[in-house]
């Protein structure tokens, strides 16, 4: 065998080092400290009032900045509805979403959202490939239950979802 012990050792070290580098690049804060899985964006009374009167209060880090931009650009037909936002409200909400989007958030799930939606502009959170994958075991019929309604209703199952906590411990799927 030409594949000697020494080569194998070097290879193992290289692989380990490469793996660790990749891991740290995606999951630390740049100072070597492991990032938390999620975070709660600073709350905005305006965002809450304008957006979560009708739907679940989505943490802004659930989508990358360009997604929010696309959604706000279409606020005249937001999933078929005209949100009728005045210029001032529009500006303030855009700034809030931008500052707290997935690309700007130092948390592991936000980073997964950013990297998994590279090259695309998801306009629904469930269209983010990683989030979709995380829900692969939930049947379509479950989302259609009257107690849930649709996949957009995160809070139906994620009891602390509005705070950004989507940990398994706080999932309860209603009948």
């Amino acid at each position: 065998m030409s594949f000697g012990k020494k080569t194998a050792g070097v290879l193992a070290i290289t692989l380990t080092f490469g793996f660790l580098t990749a891991l740290s690049a995606s999951a630390d804060d740049g100072k070597g400290k492991r990032l938390p899985s999620f975070t709660s964006a600073p709350s905005s009374a305006l965002y809450k009032q304008e957006c979560s009167s009708c739907h679940f209060l989505y943490q802004p880090w659930l989508l990358p900045e360009r997604s929010w931009q696309a959604i706000m650009d279409e606020s005249g037909k937001h999933f078929g509805e005209n949100l009728g936002l005045d210029a001032e409200t529009d500006k303030e909400i855009r700034a809030y979403l931008k500052a707290n989007s997935s690309d700007k958030t130092a948390a592991r799930w936000a980073q997964k959202i950013t990297s998994s939606s590279e090259g695309m502009t998801p306009k629904k959170i469930m269209d983010v490939p990683w989030i979709k994958k995380e829900h692969r075991e939930v049947g379509a019929g479950v989302f259609k239950r009257p107690s849930i309604g649709s996949p957009s209703n995160c809070g139906a199952c994620h009891q602390k979802g509005a705070e950004g906590n989507f940990e398994e411990d706080f999932i309860k799927i209603p009948k």
Binding site: S52, S53, C54, H55, I148, S150, S152, N153
Partner: peptide
């Protein structure tokens, strides 16, 4: 209840 399932 809103069409998106939020209590009004």
């Amino acid at each position: 209840k809103s069409t998106a399932g939020k209590v009004i």
